[in-house]
Computed example of a mutant assay.
Amino acid sequence: MEAYTKTHRVLRLILYLSTGYHRTKDECTGFLGIKDTAFYNYCNLLRDVGFELKQKEGRYWIDSSVPDSKVLLNILHFSEEEMYLLSRSIDILDEGTGISFGLKNKLVSFLNHDEVIDDYLAKHKSEKVRLIRKAINNKTRVLLVNYSSGNSESVRNRLVEPFEFKDDFKLIWAFDVDLKKNRQFKVSRIEEVVETTFGWEYGYSHRSKPIDIFRNTGELNKEIDLTLNIKARNLLIEEYPMAEKYLDKIRENRFGLKVSVAKYEGPGRFVLGLADCIEVRGDKGFVEFLRSKRKKF
Rank of each mutant, 00 (worst) to 15 (best):
Q184M: 15
V177H: 06
V193A: 05
W173Q: 09
I172A: 03
G203F: 06
G199T: 06
L171F: 13
K186P: 00
K170W: 02
F198T: 14
N182P: 12
E191G: 03
K170A: 13
K180T: 08
K181D: 14
I172N: 00
F198D: 14
I172G: 02
W200L: 03
Y202H: 15
F175W: 14
D176K: 07
E192F: 04
F175A: 03
D176L: 07
K170R: 11
E192H: 10
W173P: 01
R183S: 13
V194S: 11
D178G: 00
F198K: 13
E191Q: 13
F198I: 14
Y202S: 12
L179H: 13
L179N: 14
L179W: 01
F175D: 01
D178N: 12
E191S: 15
L179Y: 09
E192K: 12
I190K: 00
V177R: 07
E201D: 13
V194I: 14
R183V: 01
T196S: 12
E195C: 01
L179T: 13
S188E: 11
V193C: 05
T196L: 04
R183K: 15
G199D: 06
E191K: 12
E195F: 04
L171P: 00
K170P: 01
E191H: 13
T196I: 05
V177Q: 05
V177L: 05
E192R: 11
I190D: 03
I190F: 02
T197I: 10
K186Q: 09
G199K: 10
W173I: 11
E195N: 11
L179I: 04
W200I: 00
D176N: 14
V194E: 12
W200K: 00
W200H: 02
R189N: 09
I190P: 01
V187Y: 02
T197P: 00
I172D: 00
V187N: 04
N182A: 06
L179R: 14
E201I: 08
G203N: 06
V187H: 04
V194P: 00
V187S: 01
T196E: 08
V193N: 05
G203I: 05
E195Y: 05
D176H: 10
S188M: 05
F185I: 13
T196R: 01
I190Y: 03
